[in-house]
């Protein structure tokens, strides 16, 4: 007899019940309100800047994307404490499967943030100039940043599950978003001033891209980056991290 896959047995009702509980009581409304606030400011920023100056727009998209990623990361990092403090085992002793628990967190964190992000870009663009949505110089950066947000939240998800500890998950997230790229740029700068034979800074940009996949495409690579690399890496790495996190959680021996 073939068992239906875990995914097909997910109950939307239970996923939403838990996602609602998590976002209201565990993550906290304040974080969700911040995400909504950023979405609104972001949308206004796009309206005021217009879509004409694409490089200024790109910088703003990138900055906002970073904020989104940090907020989404903070939201899912709470999962670390949920697992570490044993609350998860209380919920999971009721008819909530491990897969549903995971899906609920994905809904309350990454999904909400990605939707907020995309809406905050799409809404003003549609209002201002719908045809700009079809312009690759507009939608490619947006998608690359979406990939980056997804990548950063997947780091928070994976490290929450791995460490079962919110602070450690946040530290891992900040390492990827801020600490590691800053170090790379700093060391790169030192090297660049000492060695002139190789183009250190373009190497630095590539390494920073490992932490911020959107950088593979924009805007620090004036010679034109690769959107496909940025998208493939951003979404690909996040899918892998989400998947590994899920497998690790599902087959972990002790919740």
């Amino acid at each position: 007899m073939r068992r239906p896959s875990a995914l097909r047995r997910l109950s939307l009702h239970r996923v939403m019940t838990h996602a609602d509980y998590v976002s209201t009581h565990v993550v906290g409304r304040s974080l969700l309100v911040s995400i909504a606030a950023i979405a609104v400011i972001h949308a206004f920023g796009i309206v005021t800047m217009g879509v004409s100056s694409t490089s200024a727009l790109a910088s703003m998209l990138l900055a906002a994307g970073m904020l989104y990623a940090i907020l989404a990361g903070l939201a899912v990092a709470s999962m670390g404490d949920d697992l570490g403090q044993g609350y998860a085992s209380l919920y999971l002793a009721h008819p909530l499967s491990r897969a549903e628990y995971f899906a609920a967190w994905m809904t309350a964190g990454p999904l909400v943030v990605l939707v907020a992000y995309l809406l905050s870009v799409a809404a003003p663009l549609i209002a201002l100039n719908p045809s700009s949505m079809l312009d690759a110089s507009v939608y490619l950066p947006v998608l690359c940043i979406a990939g980056q947000i997804s990548f950063h939240t997947s780091v928070a998800v994976f490290s929450s599950i791995l460490f079962k500890d919110k602070s450690k998950a946040i530290l891992a997230l900040l390492t990827v978003i801020i600490i590691a790229p800053t170090l790379v740029v700093f060391v790169g700068g030192l090297l660049a001033s000492a060695i002139h034979t190789v183009d250190i800074m373009s190497l630095v940009a590539k390494i920073v891209g490992v932490f911020h996949p959107a950088v593979f495409y924009m805007p620090f690579t004036p010679r034109g980056g690769s959107a496909s690399l940025s998208l493939a890496y951003g979404f690909g790495a996040s899918l892998i991290l989400y998947y590994l996190g899920y497998r690790f959680f599902k087959y972990r021996t002790d919740i």
Partner: peptide, 12 residues
């Protein structure tokens, strides 16, 4: 299931 340790979320 009544767990041994009271693992109830204190914040609700």
């Amino acid at each position: 299931y009544l767990p041994e340790r009271p693992v109830y979320p204190g914040f609700v």
